[in-house]
Design a protein around this nucleic acid. Structure first.
Lengths: 225, 225
DNA sequence: CCAAAAGTGTTCCGTCTACACCCATGG
DNA sequence: CCATGGGTGTAGACGGAACACTTTTGG
């Protein structure tokens, strides 16, 4: 139990954000290019350093806000990545977070300004340092969560069709699911409410729009998909 | 994407170890007392600071070795804990790890030297800072893992009876399980091998000792309990 | 009129759960 | 001889998976 504060080495601590979005029936991540050497130009996650006056969680929120202009986003920690030489420029321990956003909420201007792009999770390029490892772990954690907690709605607009929701699950889990079985399960969750509105953009016939009722969910939190 | 190394604040990074053991049919954690102010004497996890020349994982291995004299222990990261004021003495970001050890491997001398004790997971005392939160999260992660991966054997001697294994599961999950159903599932896993040895310490009749065969498991990794 | 997506129930099979009695032995 | 833990099988319930056809409408 030899903890004493002075005489110990301080280390740069950063956060890296794995930002998930759902677009064209594909699960995507927001990737940028590393702006500085070493490794300048390589595909990279968006990140930043933790400051003394903010918690690590707050740093992640701040960095996400700088990039997207969004607050109160669903974010969860992926873990700490701490190899000695993971960053060739300096000793940096990084804490990765994943975030779920609705791509339509994302300001296109900011996207261009920061030179970031939505990349299909199934087609990740080679990336700087351990960033690919971070993404894969984030995806695994997210897959686990999405089965038992209603986080899928964070990736969709407030109103969505059942086909959209199903495609989202298929994209996240990487496998197709049976339409009738899927809708049967939805029907059992009263907090996924059918509206009278119809979306005609996806088909000629049109499909009913649904909505996630958070209050109803809080009363009866039985989610399983 | 504004990462530059100089001009950023470095932070103390520590590791904290949640060491699980199984004793007297109870899941236990190894707890010590904080040796220095602020908070001197409070119940605390055993930890240490990350050095520049070691990875965070390596620091956790080292700290565990200092305490237990054990190497090659099963360890997994719980996550980073980074509140600004989580340590009143200095800004410290801590990465928690949980470890599974067989209590019999633990050197009693070291235990006394370090003033640590095995504490029942169901009867945790008030603890320093966020250490209780770390333990609870570690337990949750361990509960998840133990259902689908053969990590339970890390907590038992090389030879064990089925009743011991069952009690371990009951202690970890906090609920009793049916003996016949439990043993039926064991029987389906060929890598849990029955030996001809008999343990008479637990009963007059004696119980067969079993062994986990790692090689057999690698060939057919179907674990579900 | 036809292509394209929306919507809708039933059957089967495998898995999980509940449950009770005999055995072997040390003291 | 009896108290204590060791060891064994079956039946019923439940949940998940497979599966095909009708409807609507824009072009």
């Amino acid at each position: 139990m030899t903890k004493y504060y002075i005489e110990h080495q301080k280390i740069l601590v950063s956060v890296d954000c794995i930002i998930f979005g759902f677009e064209q029936n594909k699960l995507k991540v927001l990737l940028g290019h590393r702006p500085i050497d070493p490794g300048k130009g390589a595909w990279s996650l968006y990140g930043g350093f933790v400051r003394n006056e903010e918690s690590v969680d707050e740093a992640a929120d701040r960095v996400l806000f700088e990039l997207t202009g969004l607050r109160n986003v669903y974010m969860r920690q992926v873990g700490a990545f701490g190899s000695v030489d993971r960053d060739p420029g300096a000793r940096v321990v990084s804490v990765a977070y994943y975030a779920l956003i609705n791509v339509k909420d994302y300001d296109q201007k900011l996207l261009a300004e920061h030179h970031v792009e939505w990349v299909n999770i199934e087609e990740l390029p080679e990336m700087f340092s351990d960033h690919k490892k971070m993404i894969l772990k984030a995806r695994k954690l997210m897959q686990q969560k999405i089965r038992t907690e209603p986080i899928s709605f964070q990736l969709l607009p407030g109103l969505f069709t059942l086909t959209q929701l199903q495609r989202l699950y298929e994209a996240v889990n990487g496998e197709e699911v049976d339409k009738r079985n899927f809708r049967k399960r939805i029907k059992e969750m009263d907090f996924i409410e059918k509206t009278t509105l119809i979306d005609k953009t996806g088909s000629k016939r049109g499909a009913f729009l649904y909505r996630f009722n958070k209050n109803a969910y809080n009363e009866d939190s039985n989610f399983k998909l």
